[in-house]
Simulated scan of single mutants.
Amino acid sequence: MSNVDSPVIVALDYPEMAPALELANALDPTACRLKVGKELFTAEGPALVERLQSLGFDVFLDLKFHDIPNTVAGALRSAADLGVWMANVHVSGGRRMLEASVDAIAGLPKPPLLIGVTVLTSMDAGDFAELAYRGSLEEQVLRLAGLARDCGLQGVVCSAQEAASLRESLGASFALVTPGIRPAGSVADDQRRVLTPAEAVAAGASYLVVGRPITRAEDPAAALQAINASL
């Protein structure tokens, strides 16, 4: 059982290890989890994840795997060997890739939570229309989330604005991981579909990914504490 008493996942969007570790040392591993994405993992690799875990943090390895089924399955096995708490794949990789992902970590002693990415929260309706998908952005999110559930994934990454409809459609146990979380008064930066932490939880979000409002705060620990208090 995890000892984390918060739904907050702090996004370590740094180019190298030193500032990521500096922030981690300022935070309480019972008050949040940490997310390592493409930039930081490409620069520092598994050693960084292991350092964060040695400090007591659960780590979400946010690499959004999207490739042929065999390649994604192998990548997820490597993530599981690293001991990460959560990993993710793009649901648009299709059923065979998703099922291979689930099979790759099934039966492991401590598999990561496997989460699917639906539509990136940096996209709005105009961006989505340019890709010529059928239906609306919201319909695509629901369609992809349903496919993820049917293939055995444990949740999806989605905008908090879509959490209420997904929670209603997919049930209470399906995890909803919501980036684009901004405390009241914060700027949206490059996120388009945003809600406050309290709004996201009320809408049905399971986990809240928060980056710059914490990582760029004058006092990151106080910023995290304020978010947790708002919940």
Score class of each variant (00 low, 15 high):
G45H: 13
G155E: 02
Y14W: 12
L48P: 11
A31D: 14
Q140Y: 02
G155P: 04
A222I: 02
D67R: 06
L108M: 15
A100W: 01
A100M: 01
F57G: 06
L61S: 10
C32H: 02
S169M: 12
E44K: 05
D67P: 04
S78I: 07
S2A: 09
L82H: 11
P213S: 09
R193C: 08
D5I: 09
S6R: 02
N25D: 14
D58K: 10
A106I: 03
V157A: 03
P7R: 04
I214P: 03
R95W: 01
R33M: 15
N228Q: 06
V117D: 05
T215E: 02
R134N: 09
G116P: 07
R33C: 05
D58G: 08
A226I: 03
L61F: 11
S6I: 08
L131V: 03
Q140L: 06
E218T: 15
F60P: 02
A184C: 02
A226S: 12
L23W: 02
D67L: 04
L23N: 03
R193S: 06
L120I: 14
N88V: 04
V59G: 07
G116S: 07
G83L: 12
L153H: 03
A202S: 13
V117A: 07
E168T: 15
G74D: 12
R51S: 15
N3R: 15
R216E: 15
I181S: 08
L144N: 04
V72S: 10
A163N: 10
V156T: 11
R134W: 00
D124C: 10
E139P: 05
P19Q: 08
R51A: 15
P183E: 11
S78Y: 06
L142Y: 02
M17A: 15
A222G: 05
V117F: 03
A79S: 15
S78A: 15
N228Y: 06
L98G: 06
D127N: 14
P213K: 05
L195S: 13
F57S: 08
V177M: 12
G180N: 09
G83M: 11
A87V: 14
P19D: 03
M86S: 02
A132H: 13
V8Q: 08
E130F: 00
A175F: 10
E50Y: 01
Q191H: 10
D58S: 12
Q161W: 00
P183Y: 10
G180Q: 08
G107E: 14
